[in-house]
C-alpha cells in the first residue's frame, strides 16, 4: 500500500521543456501564475489555455496524467465552484431557493474560477513532471541565493530538501517492513473504526521515527567524514547553465505577461 506514494512525480523525457534549465521553468511558472490572476475575459483565458495546451503538447506529457494528478484536488475545485455559484450576485437572477440565489454572473465566475484553478494546477504539474526533484532543488537554491545576504540559510534548506527526497524511498521501504512485522504479530491496520485504525498506526509510527532519527545521526557522521562543512566553499559537479534557449524562453514569457496585462487593461 505504501509503495503507491510518489512525491515529486517526474516523467522522464527529452523534450524542449525537459531540457530547459530548472530556473527558467520556475520563473516561467511564476509568470504564468501571475498572468492567470491578471486575466479576466474569454479572450485572455483563451490565450492562456492555448499556451498551456501547447506547452503540454511540446512536453509530450499525456493529458490523462495531468487529469489524474488533479483528482486529489477535486474537492477543493468543487467547493470553490459551489461557493462562487451562490455568493456572486449580478446579472439576471435565474432561480432562487431558500437563501440561495443563482445568477448568470455567478455561473460565469464559478466557471472562470474552476478553469483558473485547473490551469494553475496543470501549470505547476508541468514543472514537476518535467524536472527531476534534484534539479528543482538546485534551481531553487540558485534562484534564492541572493537571500543569503540577509542571512536566510538557503544552502541548508536545499540540502535538507534533497536529503529528504533521497530518503523517501528508504523510509517507505522501512515502513513496509515494520508494518509487515506488526501484521505478522497480529496487528490490524485495515478494519475497525477510524479511531481504532489511527491507534493501530501508533506501533508503526513509533519505530519508524526512532529509526529515522538514528539514520539522521549516522548520516550526519558520514557527511562530516566526507568533509561536509556547510555551503561555504562548496562547488558542484553539475553546474546549471542558462543557454540561449533559456534566455529566449524567459524573454518570451515576460513579453507574454506584458501582453496579457495590456489586454486586461483594455478590458479584454
Amino acid at each position: 500500500m505504501l509503495k503507491d506514494i510518489t512525491l515529486g512525480q517526474y516523467f522522464p523525457g527529452n523534450s524542449f521543456i525537459h531540457r530547459l534549465d530548472p530556473r527558467t521553468k520556475l520563473i516561467c511558472t511564476v509568470i504564468y501564475i501571475a498572468a492567470l490572476f491578471v486575466a479576466k475575459s474569454y479572450i485572455t483565458y483563451g490565450v492562456l489555455l492555448l499556451t498551456l495546451v501547447l506547452c503540454v503538447a511540446v512536453s509530450k506529457i499525456k493529458a490523462s496524467a495531468m487529469l489524474k494528478g488533479m483528482k486529489p484536488l477535486a474537492l477543493i475545485i468543487i467547493f470553490t465552484a459551489i461557493l462562487n455559484l451562490f455568493y456572486i450576485k449580478g446579472g439576471t437572477e435565474l432561480f432562487s431557493f431558500w437563501v440561495l440565489t443563482v445568477t448568470t454572473e455567478g455561473i460565469k465566475t464559478a466557471c472562470f474560477m474552476v478553469i483558473r484553478i485547473m490551469m494553475l494546477i496543470s501549470g505547476t504539474f508541468l514543472l514537476t513532471y518535467t524536472t527531476t526533484p534534484m534539479s528543482l532543488t538546485d534551481g531553487l537554491e540558485l534562484l534564492l541565493n541572493p537571500l543569503k545576504k540577509i542571512r536566510v540559510p538557503v544552502h541548508e534548506f536545499s540540502m535538507m530538501m534533497s536529503i529528504a527526497l533521497r530518503f523517501i524511498p528508504t523510509l517507505i521501504e522501512e515502513a513496509d517492513k515494520i508494518s509487515n512485522a506488526q501484521k505478522a504479530r497480529g496487528a490490524d491496520f485495515e478494519t475497525g473504526k477510524l479511531t481504532e485504525r489511527a491507534k493501530a498506526l501508533l506501533p508503526l509510527l513509533v519505530p519508524l521515527f526512532v529509526s529515522a532519527i538514528r539514520r539522521a545521526d549516522e548520516l550526519a557522521i558520514a557527511m562530516e567524514s566526507r568533509c561536509y562543512h556547510g555551503g561555504e566553499g562548496r562547488t558542484r559537479m553539475k553546474k546549471l547553465s542558462l543557454k540561449l534557449s533559456d534566455l529566449m524562453t524567459m524573454v518570451f514569457s515576460l513579453l507574454f505577461l506584458a501582453g496579457i496585462i495590456i489586454l486586461a487593461r483594455f478590458g479584454f
Binding site: P133, M134, S162, I163, R166, R215, E218, L219, A222
Partner: peptide, 10 residues
C-alpha cells in the same frame, strides 16, 4: 549501513 551514508538520489 550503506543506506545511511548516501546523500544523493543518483
Amino acid at each position: 549501513n550503506p543506506d545511511n551514508q548516501m546523500v544523493a538520489s543518483v
